Simulated scan of single mutants.
Amino acid sequence: MSWIDGPLLGFDTETTGIDVDADRIVSAALVRRDASGTHVRTWLLDPGVDIPEAASAIHGITTQYARANGEPAALALNELASVLAEAIAAGVPVVAYNATFDLCILDAELRRHGLATLAERLGRDVVPVIDPLVLDRAADRYRSGKRKLVDLCAFYDITDTGRLHTADVDVVATLDVLAAIVVRYPDLGALALGPLHEHQVTAHRAWAEGFNAWRTSKGLTGPGAEIGWPDRRILVDQSAD
């Protein structure tokens, strides 16, 4: 059997913006896929700040709705992190599209509320993580076009996507894209979870360094792509080369 047969735990957030250090989680979903089927759990949070109209336009959650219907952020975040940590500790891989964003904003939110991060709950790094964006980019490096989730759904013929930019719908689509990637590249499905995680660490770093070099060649300024994956930290054994 391959890890693609499950169990897998998909994870996604919808937020007030794209700054992982300053923005807040508005909704989150965990979708467990195993032999018994697909099981969805969602959270709606009152983030404690106004949700910008631009963010509401994407995910459909307004400040007023979140305040009226959302759980207190600290309560929901602690519950979400507890379920994630329990699954990871049991060896279930977390699947997230652009995983660095969701994992880093979750950690920032947990710290903001004085709660233990995922790594602190586990007593180790958050491993294994599977990111279809990283896998697709490494396997088909020179394919032109954008690689947002909607783009990969189109490329891999995932048609039953519902309303993307809703956390639970995005997670189901992410799991479907991952399954299609493994069909196209069966060597990925043959890897054990540990080597698969390390493959993504290396692949993401190679992509980020190449992307940042391209930015420099074009005279572009700014921070560029983070080198670390899925944590923004660069671990010593990953930077020794």
Rank of each mutant, 00 (worst) to 15 (best):
L178E: 07
A81N: 04
A154D: 15
L175C: 13
W229I: 02
G17T: 10
L106H: 04
G70I: 12
T216K: 10
L110M: 11
R141G: 12
E86D: 13
V126M: 02
T100K: 00
E53T: 14
V26H: 04
G145C: 11
D160S: 15
P195M: 09
L115W: 06
P93K: 01
T13W: 10
D187R: 11
V40K: 02
V26Q: 08
G10E: 09
A225G: 00
D12P: 01
G48C: 05
F211S: 09
Y65H: 15
V177Y: 03
L164Q: 12
G162N: 12
D151G: 10
G48Y: 03
Y142M: 13
I88M: 12
S56T: 15
D102L: 01
H197D: 09
A173D: 07
T117Q: 08
G219L: 05
E198R: 15
D157K: 13
R137V: 04
P186C: 11
A35I: 06
R32H: 00
S27W: 08
D170W: 11
V177K: 06
L84N: 02
D157F: 07
G6C: 10
D241F: 12
R32N: 01
G10N: 06
E71F: 02
G6V: 10
W3Q: 09
F155E: 09
H59W: 10
H39N: 06
L8E: 13
V127E: 15
T38G: 00
D231Y: 00
H113D: 08
